[in-house]
């Protein structure tokens, strides 16, 4: 048997922390731009959409790397329910990271709003808008964000719990 892995590989760590930064920025940008009537709103809106597209592409890359890489096993001594919850919350985060940008793209599509991605290309939108499909993806986008914020709170809380209370290597495995 090979050596026990204690850390996620470099690619996974880089993707984890860069996406963490991106997701935090996107959530705050999103919450601000749906409320603000300030002149920067349009600029922020114009950044939120291409960065959301980027987040989706990064997620697909991350998912590919995840299934091709070995990952550190959870520390021994965790109860079965804790292990199950840990695995479930990680897959739930992946699901939300997929659902959020996808619903964002689809709500723009059905509202007939093309998305300009960093002046490189334009993602076309529906010729004929469909307001009810828009409503589904618009409300879904918001609900998924609320769920994401909740799961992230658990995720961060769990990382701190492992590090400061259990004093195991879980947080360090991602540093």
């Amino acid at each position: 048997m090979t050596d026990q892995i204690t850390r996620f590989n470099l690619a996974m760590r880089v993707l984890h922390w860069s996406m963490a930064l991106l997701i935090f920025a996107m959530v705050f940008a999103g919450l601000a731009m749906v409320r603000a009537l300030e002149p920067w709103q349009l600029t922020l809106l114009g950044l939120h959409k291409p960065f959301g597209t980027l987040a989706l592409l990064l997620l697909l890359l991350r998912f590919l790397i995840r299934i091709k890489s070995s990952t550190p096993s959870l520390p021994s001594g965790m109860s079965t329910i804790q292990v199950k919850l840990a695995k479930f919350s990680h897959w739930l985060l992946y699901a939300l990271m997929l659902i959020i940008p996808t619903s964002g793209l689809l709500m723009q599509y059905y509202a007939a709003r093309p998305i300009v991605v960093f002046d490189f290309f334009t993602i076309p939108a529906a010729m004929v808008p469909h307001i009810e499909y828009f409503a589904v993806f618009r409300e879904g986008h918001s609900l998924a964000i609320l769920l994401l914020i909740t799961v992230l709170a658990v995720h961060i809380g769990a990382a701190l719990y492992h590090h400061f209370i259990r004093k195991d290597g879980v947080l360090k495995s991602m540093l």
Binding site: M33, V34, R35, A36, L37, E38, P39, W40, Q41, L42, L45, A111, I131, E132, F134, A135, V136, R138, E139
Partner: peptide, 27 residues
């Protein structure tokens, strides 16, 4: 392209809120 006119730049968010409300109501 849009100017920096503060009223022009407020229109996107206000129109989006109106659209979101009526879309949900229609659904």
């Amino acid at each position: 392209i849009a100017t920096e006119d503060p009223i022009l730049r407020a229109r996107s968010a206000a129109y989006a809120e109106s659209y979101r409300r009526r879309a949900k109501e229609q659904l």
